[in-house]
Every structure is written in C-alpha cells, then in structure tokens.
Simulated assay, not measured.
Amino acid sequence: MEVLLANINHLESLSVLFDQYRIFYNQVSNLDAAQEFLKDRFKNNDSVVFAANDNGQLVGFTQLYPSFSSVSMKRVWILNDLYVEESYRRRGIAKLLMNAAEEYAKESGAIRVILSTQTSNMTAQKLYEARNYIKNEEFYYYALQLQ
C-alpha cells in the first residue's frame, strides 16, 4: 500500500471514491458531478488530495483545503474529506492517509490541521482522538445554509 499525491491523472478512479464518500454522507450518487468537482479542484489548485494505492487501484483518499489563521498569521489546512473503501477498512489506510496529510501540512509551515465529523461517526472520532486531535470546547461551529 502506498500513499501518493493525487493529480488530474487520477481523476477517473478518484471520482468513483469521491462519489462513494458522498453516498456515505447520504448524498445521491452523481459520478459526473463528482468528477467535475474534483477536476475543478485540480485545475484551480484549490485542494491537495492524497490517495491510497493498492497495486494500481485507488482505495481511499483524503482532501485538504487551504486556509489561514489571522491571529497567528500562519497557514491552516482543513482536512475536509477522508474515505476508505469499505472492503479496505480496518487495515490502517486511514492512518496512512492522515500521516501523509499531516506531514504535508508540517512541510508547508502550517500551524494546524483542523477537521470536523458527524457526531454519530464514532469510528472517525476515535481515530482523530487517537492521533491527538482535540475536540474544541472553546469555539462554536456555525454555518449559514445558502442553498
């Protein structure tokens, strides 16, 4: 198993995984839209994607989006997506993907990696807490739904 920095050449396989990820979060499958969305991310350099590769087959990914902390005047990476195909789960692949993302963040001079997950996703919460991610008790998370 290797983790690679994905690029436009991985678009087709990555789009399938991205569509599965969205289905996991109760979205309707739309492979064409998933592919277009990822294509735009690569084209515009909006995100960084790491993919887990098992002998030429992509089986998981994580996607980071850049942000900044005005207070510290440093880069922050938002680990927005983490997904591993169901048949590949419990093999340490999510940890490998997070290792790659965290190392990338350190190398870019970031002050932190932030993420969120559903309150019902206990598996993800255990993974993050085991990696020393701290549940923020100081700030509330707000969202304004526009569409």
Rank of each mutant, 00 (worst) to 15 (best):
Y83R: 00
E36F: 12
T117Y: 07
G109Q: 02
L11C: 06
S108V: 03
L115S: 07
Y83N: 00
L5A: 10
Q20W: 01
Y133M: 06
F50H: 13
E103R: 11
F61P: 01
F50A: 11
N7M: 03
R91V: 06
S87Q: 14
M73A: 15
Y128F: 05
I111S: 13
A124R: 06
V59L: 07
N26K: 13
S47Y: 00
A34K: 11
Q63R: 14
R131Y: 05
Y21F: 02
W77T: 13
S120N: 08
K126C: 05
H10M: 08
I23C: 13
A100F: 11
D81G: 01
G109H: 04
L144K: 15
M1A: 12
E137R: 11
N99A: 04
N45G: 09
Q118Y: 04
A6K: 10
K43C: 01
I134A: 07
D32F: 05
K135V: 09
N53I: 10
I93W: 13
M1W: 10
E129Y: 03
Y104S: 05
Y128P: 04
Y142L: 03
F139N: 15
Y128V: 10
A110D: 01
I111E: 15
L144I: 11
N9G: 13
I23W: 09
L146A: 00
S67K: 02
V113M: 09
A6M: 12
M1V: 10
E107H: 09
N44P: 13
Q147L: 00
A51R: 10
L38I: 07
F50W: 14
Q35V: 00
K95F: 09
Q57P: 06
Q27T: 05
A34E: 12
R112C: 15
E107L: 12
V76Y: 01
N99G: 04
K106M: 08
R41L: 15
Q125F: 03
L79M: 13
F24Y: 15
K95N: 10
Q20M: 05
A94P: 11
L144D: 07
N44K: 15
S120I: 02
